[in-house]
Design a protein around this nucleic acid. Structure first.
Lengths: 194, 194, 194, 194
DNA sequence: CATGAATGAGGATTCATTCAT
DNA sequence: CATGAATGAATCCTCATTCAT
């Protein structure tokens, strides 16, 4: 009775829909955004959204997917041309901060909406997050560090610090994403390399 | 016309009410927790809650207030007996991680529910948060650091890293709050001092 | 289990209670005024009102009773010293307008709150209203009128006109209750006599 | 961001909805009528009403609008074929009495529900009322009256008398709207001319 | 005389969702 | 592709009232 696999025809309206939803989820949160809000933003009726997506949860899933794809790409582009592991870390960190703040709302949704808000897909959402964190982990692998350094905790510290920027970063503020990244990484570089 | 300091009589039921609400807000989030949920948890009727608090928002305000009081106290107790600035930082950081994770749900609410979820009181909630962050800032003032260190960004990094622990920390996990704090602070200490 | 006949001990608090309720009923209406509103106005708790009155409806009943007593007295005082039937009509009409507007809120309640808002006592309330209207009717009996005049409709016209003043009369307006009454009565006098 | 002229699609159900609401508002009052009551009357669920109207207040606004349109039309039809100012007054007055009593409940709502019951729209509601009263005023302008007559007070007297009929008029009673109007106007005509 | 605490029913409104057209 | 109309359950909250103390 409902043959399609993951109901999301990709045409112009569909794109606008996802973008509007991402904007709203990123700025107000998932629960606080209603289907009405989204519909209004794309000049549609609430019911019409269901032609494109089976549910609000599915919409979020699509946004997460697109967001991870995007941040991964941004991340890789920032890093691929660099050889020095520390330069790569710094570039990656800067990409994270940008993703969490300025960049498109797709990426911001990933860090704003936590998987446990959508039990139905929490597994998938966590998987998407992990997918990105794995990229980040790779970055750390390239570093040669002092024996006292716990790589897992280092990763968590940097991720947390970067993530947190979404709460205080302002494009008009005193620091750019690059400057912030440089400062954060310097603590690690100066301490963890003899 | 009637002073009434913000409707919240303090007796046994009232306490249970706030605690139940804090538990739920901390674990499910503010929006996702209904007054019904809270009422059920304390075996009350939803309407009865309004004898104790004027609104759901006011409940959150009370929790924030209690949470900040508690974390501030925990924080100060952890730090006051210590003289060495780095030892103080480490102890403070550990207190933050504990507050964000194990400790009573009151403190967890502060880091889980963001002020912008409650427009009516966002000002007050931010003030409560700042109150704690000021304590944290004091800690950093005691440190003598290299000239390249930006104290503001350092504070933000540590706060973010600690804050983030709420998402991954597990009391049964590989590391204790103390161990995590020690690792985080070591990056700073080893790099930022001579 | 509840011996008292019409539960309304008359002491100071009781008086304040009825007055506050009358004020609120007169200005906001019966349905729109909550027991909480009334309690707040006399610095009591909502539950405490029930020591004095058995229900909100009973409160209204008491107000109606007091209101009718008062308007009747005002009315009689205005009229008793006069002999000329037309002068009596004019004075009575002026008393009505005052009752509906400036005078204590007790009388205003009678003309603002309609009996059908309180099914339980609608009979009693109507009786109270009739009690006053009877006074008004007496006034008309003294007049000698042309045969074409229907006394019942005349009464209804004057009552309606006076009643209506509650909606537009202002103590700071262009006309006093006396002037209004004089104008209204003049139409009747000039046409209905010889 | 979206004009939307005030949410009220016009089709069959919508019409039934407004009519049912008008009936209930006219007979029980605005505050005393719940959305549940209205929904039950049209065999809908309470929530469904909100597809057609944004709020209970908006429903009242729509009814007022329709009511004023209707009474204005009735009024004009009654008056337009007549030339004699006194005949016009009498016809207009009769139309008012009918509007307040027998006629559709739309018009009755205007005279039963006072603007101050709905603070949000009290301005608009007053404007609607004024719109009708202006029609009534025009009627008086055509009359040549004695110098002692205050046209404003005359208007208020007639309006009040007519308005009041809603409380006592019965279609099965002793008098028709025409008879009542004739009697009321006669007082004015006989006194105020020559 | 009154309070403190609660009840239970009902208030308006919002929600994600459905489905015939 | 989308709408127009509705559902049903849940939302926060307010109500008049009760009753042990």
């Amino acid at each position: 009775m409902k043959p399609q696999r993951s109901n999301s025809r990709s045409n112009s309206r569909n794109r606008a829909l996802v973008e509007a939803a991402a904007d709203l989820f990123a700025s107000q949160g998932f629960k606080a955004t209603s289907m009405r809000d989204i519909a209004r933003a794309v000049d549609m009726l609430p019911g019409s959204i269901y032609y494109h997506f089976d549910s609000k949860d599915d919409l979020l899933l699509a946004i997460y997917e697109a967001g991870v794809a995007q941040i991964t790409q941004t991340f890789e582009e920032a890093v691929e041309s660099l050889d020095d592991p520390w330069a790569r870390l710094e570039a990656g960190m800067a990409a994270l901060i940008r993703a969490v703040t300025e960049e498109s709302s797709f990426t911001r949704v990933i860090f704003k909406v936590t998987p446990d808000e959508v039990p139905k897909y929490s597994g998938e959402l966590i998987a998407f997050r992990d997918q990105f964190e794995a990229k980040f982990e790779e970055l750390l692998e390239g570093l040669s560090l002092q024996p006292w350094v716990n790589r897992q905790l280092l990763r968590l510290m940097l991720l947390g610090a970067g993530n947190h920027a979404q709460l205080w970063f302002s494009p008009d503020g005193d620091y750019s994403a690059d400057e912030i990244s440089e400062q954060f990484c310097r603590f690690v570089k100066e301490s963890a390399t003899r």
